[in-house]
Amino acid sequence: MSDAGHGAPPLLDARGTRCPVPVIRAARACRDLDDGATLVLLADDEAARSDVPAWARMRGHGLTVEDEDGWTRYTVLVGGGSPD
């Protein structure tokens, strides 16, 4: 899963799960990824809208958030943020 530059990034569909499950699943997936890899997380939990950005900030991951119809796509850039 470390060849982020080739093929589609790993996709994690956490729609239908409630806090803190989406963040936990994203964290589990990121544990196996190298810095610079990306992970796409889909979630529709309202709390995830706050918690995924907060987790990315605490862990030093970069994050792009795109709202879709009733759910949200979070693209995590592992190690690509500026930690507090």
């Binding site: 309202e46 709390a47 918690d51 907060a54 605490m58």
Partner: peptide
Amino acid sequence: GSACTSSALRPSHVLAAMGVLTHG
């Protein structure tokens, strides 16, 4: 202020507005 502890299952709007963790 976590969603799972509220009857509406919504996280605290205060924590959300601050951009901090709402779970736990």
